[in-house]
Amino acid sequence: MTAQTVEYIRYRIPEQRSAEFLAAYTRAARQLAAAPQCVSYELARCEEYAENGAHFVLRITWTSTEAHLEGFRRSELFPPFLAEIGPYVENIEEMRHYEPTPVRGNGSAVPTLYDWAGGAEAFSRLTEVFYDKVLKDDLLAPLFTDLAPEHAAHVALWLAEVFGGPAAYSETQGGHGHMVAKHFGKNISEPQRRRWVNLVQDAADDAGLPTDAEFRSAFVAYVEWGTRLAVYFSGPDAQSPAEQPVPRWSWGSMPPYQG
C-alpha cells in the first residue's frame, strides 16, 4: 500500500482580499470533501501581523501523491475546485508534497484513554469483573477451561498499554505477537466473539469505566478490532504476524497494521 502524503500550500494574500479568499476556499472545500483521494484538509491563517499580506497554509492529506496528481486532478471534481482557487494561484509561495515520518504523537493536553478511564486500577477492575462473567457464561467458559490465575492481571496490563498506559505488558510478557499466540488453535466462533464483545461492555459498566460517548466509542472500536483479529488467529489458516509492538489506541485512531 502506498503511503499517505501531505501537501502543503503556502499563500500570501493581500489583506483586502483575505475575506474573499476564505470564502473561495470554503466553497472549494466541498470538492475536497467529496474526493475519495482526500483523507483530510485544513486551512490555517498566521496569527502574527504581516505588512506584506495575510499568510495562509493549506494542509491536505492525500491517500498518495499519485492519487492526488493522477486521480483528483483528472477527476470531475478538479475543474470546480480550480475555478474557486484559481484567482489565488499567483499568491502561492510554496506547493509541495511531504512524506510523513514516524515522529508523531499527542501532547499531554489530550488525556490518553488510559488516564480517562482511571488508570491501572480501572483496567484491573474491568478484567476481574469480565473474567468472572466469562467463567459463568455457557458460550465462553469452554474457551477458558485452563484459565491461569494471573490471566486477568495480564490482560489488564495489555489493555492499559493499548489505551496509552505504561508499557508493562511489553516489558513483562512480550509484544503483539505474544498476545496473538495465546489464540492459536482456539477456533473462536463468531457467536463467541460477539458474546465477548457484549460481556466486556457489561463489565465496563459494572467496573465503573467512563460512559461518555467519545470514550466508549473508542473502547468498543478496539474491542471489535481486537476480537476480529483473535478469531482469525484462532483459526486453522492463521499465520503468525510479523513482530509488532503492542497497538496503541487513541481517540478516533487505530494502529497502521491489520494483523
Rank of each mutant, 00 (worst) to 15 (best):
L43Y: 05
Q244R: 13
F81K: 00
G107R: 07
A67M: 10
P142V: 02
K133Y: 14
P166Y: 06
A168T: 13
A203C: 02
V89G: 00
W225K: 07
A141G: 05
E121N: 02
E76S: 09
T61R: 08
W196T: 06
D212K: 12
R45F: 06
R59W: 05
F123A: 04
G235I: 07
H176S: 01
E121M: 04
F56E: 03
T26Y: 10
G71W: 04
P87E: 08
Y232G: 00
Y41K: 11
G118F: 02
V200W: 07
K186D: 06
E243L: 01
G185K: 06
T211Q: 12
T65N: 08
A83M: 02
H154Q: 13
I188A: 04
L199T: 09
G86C: 06
T101L: 14
P100T: 03
Q258S: 13
L159N: 04
Q16M: 03
N91H: 15
P36I: 10
A148C: 00
Y114C: 02
P111L: 04
R74T: 13
Q192R: 10
V89Q: 08
Y88I: 10
Y98L: 11
A34F: 05
A29L: 03
K136R: 14
A24E: 12
Q192H: 12
R74Q: 12
D206I: 05
F215D: 02
R194L: 15
Y169Q: 09
H68N: 11
P102G: 09
Y88V: 08
V162C: 12
R193W: 09
A33D: 14
W116N: 02
E171W: 06
V103S: 13
R125F: 06
I13F: 05
P256D: 11
W116A: 08
V39K: 09
F21Y: 05
R45Y: 04
E128G: 15
A24T: 11
I85M: 03
R248S: 08
